[in-house]
Structure formats: C-alpha cells, structure tokens
Design a protein around this nucleic acid. Sequence first.
RNA 1: GGCGCGGUAGCUCAGUUGGUUAGAGCGAACGACUCAUAAUCGUUAGGUCGGGGGUUCGAGUCCCCCCCACGCCA
Length: 572
Amino acid sequence: MARHLITSAIPYINGIKHLGNLVGSQLPADLYARYLRARGNEVMFLCATDEHGTPAELAAAKAGKPVADYCAEMWAVQAELAKGFRLSFDHFGRSSSPQNHKLTQHFAGRLADAGLIREVSEKQVYSHADKRFLPDRYIEGTCPNCGYDKARGDQCENCTKQLDPTDLIDPRSAISGSTDLEVRETKHLYLRQSQMRGKLQDWIDSKTDWPILTTSIAKKWLNDGDGLQDRGITRDLDWGIPVKKGEEDWPGMEGKVFYVWFDAPIEYIACAGEWAEAHGKSDADWERWWRTDKGADDVRYTQFMGKDNVPFHTLSFPATILGSGEPWKLVDYIKSFNYLNYDGGQFSTSQGRGVFMDQALEILPADYWRWWLLSHAPESSDSEFTWENFQSSVNKDLADVLGNFASRVTKFCRSKFGEEVPAGGTPGEREAQLIDDLEKGLRDYEAHMDAIDVRKSALALRALWVLGNEYLQDVAPWTTFKEDPDAAAMQIRIALNLIRFYAVISSPFIPDASAQLLTAMKSEDAEWPKDVASAVKALPVGHAFAVPEVTFRKISDDERAEWQERFAGGRR
RNA sequence: GGCGCGGUAGCUCAGUUGGUUAGAGCGAACGACUCAUAAUCGUUAGGUCGGGGGUUCGAGUCCCCCCCACGCCA
C-alpha cells in the first residue's frame, strides 16, 4: 500500500466548464484516484477553484455582486457539478482561502530572502473612470497597422499584429469605454526564474518517464530564445492576495496583490490545509502529504492538467518550491492532455458551442459522459467529440456489452432457477479457460491504469466485459439447461459472479452503474479482486440477487439529432 | 515568420529502442444463436501508413524537402 497525492488543475472560478475542460484534468484525475483507492492505496485527491484576477472581478461586476460573493456562489455551483460528475475530491478548496493567503505570502517571503525576487518599475495604463489599472487586453482602440477600430492592447484580432497598449490610436477602456486614461509608473515584483534555469533543467531532464507532450513544452520554455524569463508576480488589483513578505508588510507594495498564476498552484498545498480544517485534523495531518521532512518522502505526487497549464506546473510552480529552499514535495509525474474539439471545431463559451458540464448532466447521467470522455481522452493528440461517436459508444459499450450482460444473465437465472445463485454442476475446462483469459485481461487493465494510459485502460476494461458475453455465447446455458440443468446452473453461477466482478473493476470509470449493479447483486464486497478464480466464487450458492434496472439506456437517433442541433452554438 | 504536436482502414484511434503477411473498437457484409436493452458471438472485406527523395539487407518507425490541420510564440 502506497500513498498517493493527486491534484487536478484548478478550474477558473468564472463560469461553467465544458466537457473539454473536464476531460483535460479533473475527470482522468478522478479515474486515477478512484483506481488507486480501490487498489487499497492511501489517496489524497485535491482540487479547488482559481478565484483571483481581473476576469473574476469583471464577471462579478457584470452580475452586480461583490467579487467575494460572486466567487462564493460560483464555487458552490462548481462544487455541485463536480459532485454531479462524481469527482471524488477529498477536498474541493478555494484559492481565496485564508490558508492560501498565508502560504502564498510565506512563499513570497522565502523567495525574497533567497534573492529570487526583484522589483521592477513599469508603465501601465490607468483608467480614471474604472479606478484601476487595465491589463493590456482590456484596452481597446484603433489598430495603427490596419485601422481596425476594436484592436486590443495586446494584439489586433483583425491583422494579428502584436501591439503595445500605447500603440493604439484613441485608446479606451474595454470595461467602461472611458477614454480618460493615463500611463502611470507602477512597481511590481518579478520572480527571477532565469536564475533557476539550471536547476529546473536538471529536474526536467531527470523525468525521463514523462509524456513527450509534457517535457517538450517545458523544454521549449526553458530553451527558447533567451531562455526562461523572469515573470511578474504582482498586479495592481483589489481582488487577490495582498502582497506581503511572509507576515510582514512589503514596503512599496501597498495596495497590490499577487498575480493569479503565482497563488493558484500554491493552492494545491493550501487546499490540503483546508481539508485538515474541514475535517478537524491537525497541521501534521496535511503536512505529511506535502512536507518531505514531515512524512511526505514516501508520497507519490501526480498532477493532471491540460497542455496549456504545463509551463506553470513544470517551471513556475517548481521554481517557487525549489526557490523557497524548504522541503516541499515536488511533483513526481505530470499527466497532461491535449484539447477535445467539438464536432469539427472548438468548444466556445461565448458562442454557446459544445456541451457544458451543467447541460451534460441535464440530458444524461454522469456515467455516460465519464465513459465516453475517458475512453476517448485526448492523450496523444487533440481529439474530437461527435454525437455519432458518442451515441455508438454509449449504446454499444455500455448498453449492449455491459448493461445487457447483466440483464441477460439475471433474467435467465430468474426464469430458470429463481432469484438466487443456483447450486449444482462443476466447472470444467471452458471455465478454466475463461478464468485464465480474465486473469490476463485484468492484469492488462491494471497495467494500463497504473501507467495512467486512460484510453488503453478503457479498451482493456471493455475487453473484459466482452469475455463474459463470449463465454455465455459459447456455453449457451439456455441450451445446456434442456439436457443438463446442473451444468447450466454452474454456468450461470459463474456469470452472476461476473456481474459483481465487473461492477468492482469498472467503478473507477462508471461509479454509479457499478454501485447499482453491486446493489442488485446484494453484495457489499467491493474489494479489488486479487485473483479471478476466487472472484468468480464470491457470491455463494443460495445468495439472493435482484434483476437490476436497465443499467444504461440507449440514445436514440432522434435524441442525437436534437442534441446536435441544440448544442451547435450561435444561440447567445 | 519561428517553434511545437499531429496527418495510419468509411469513423475514433494503437503501433516500444527500424525486422516475419500494419492492429483494435465502431460502422459494413455474411453466418451462428435466441437467455437478453432487435441484445450477443463468429467470419470476412477494407489501408501504396499525407507526398517526394535518401540511409539500410530491411522503414509507418531514422534523415532531408514539400503539403495539410491544430496550437504556442514573436
């Protein structure tokens, strides 16, 4: 039994995430967490909302609410959706928590002491009407290059030219439209990542088992151009963690907050502190997950994220941790994902294109989505959601292969032997063969799960389901029953046990259906099978069961067409 | 423009350090079966592995050039 710390990239507080976001981090992280727990490991699975920054402030203003209230509400919404998708976080925290305030300030202080922070004076646009500094992309004006009148301060969308806010003709605030702008001098803190380049390079180079996607992104940032650049870690905003050096004030930094990318990953750690508080535990209880001097040296830490988050997790956050000089746990393995596209294009929040987490749960139970998303996870390249594919995958894999297996076995038994595991007969060569095949298949499945090969795991699991149908088809108890009822009883006894076996091993993918099947089999034995031979005898002769409700219903062509239409976008 | 990840059967994708007739699932055709959610099981068909050169006894797998898609950056 090992100890596993698992984190999923923390979703931004602003708005409801789409299925691409879900499959890019939270869902595969949950799969892995559930699997490791099922195998008897001690698991700490953490996630949180990323709450700071300008977008949250603007969304709150748009909703007419104080930003803290807005974040609290959106956190509740996201927590509820996470629950809806059965994401089994040990704690779902908030980057705005007191724990994260304290820890972020602590890290900044340590980094400053280590000489890894420098102060930089820069010019930024201040809006009198908005009473705030404007990030580049919140300044609009006419492009000096092409004359487009809605160019943003960072780039012109029309001609794609990169811009500086001061390049714009007739600049105005994208928030209020005000032209009462002023360029002001302001001071900010920069993390001297460039100083850490060697250390980070060595660390990345030591991770030979990481996916190419992960290391290639990290190496690009380390080596491109002049190499890893220092990054600003503060902003002139109200909403965020006040800049402090540990517990002390930071002269010259009054009224400023840490930039969201600096405090967000620290929330991974702070979240464990929130977990401890929420469960009445001590500091030692969470520190044993994060401090290698306090018990975390035997922890294996795995992070899940979309490819856009890789630079922060391979470079910025490790720079923070290494730079602190304290024995915090560094990540052991980063599992990163490509993007999921939607029906020939991208998911789009602004156009309402694609399926979002709340909508998905409105039309179908979580397991349907979990199965499709995980069995098609964008591991090696971007992948594509299509309704045809979703429909055929759900109908074939879940309804026909697994659901129907449970149905045919239980109904046959009920009609011939009644609703209990029948006695009689002796397993023979064919059963030995089945057990052998299942044993190999199970090992294959476990190997893929251990390696976090999500798609391959799904394929291997499905192959195990197929073995059951194959066996039934082969021994045909409905025929056997006519000449040798005892033999048929033995065959169906095995098959009934397979239902329980499938429920147990499928639970990381489809927890609700697994629970339903286990309930139908009236079994509480959900322990991961040590070997198949004993697993197919777990339900003894005479053990009562019930015919389960339809475990997975099919998606009709009409539904598919209707949903395709409904989520095509362009409705907002 | 630079860089990155890809371009493998109708569809979604596997293909370790180059090595016998390129694989899986779905879809298709045919057959078997009838317990079951018109489900299941079996068989078969289907690809000049984006294009062109090269290295090698041998390349989807290495090198060069080009084309296409996506992404990142300037």
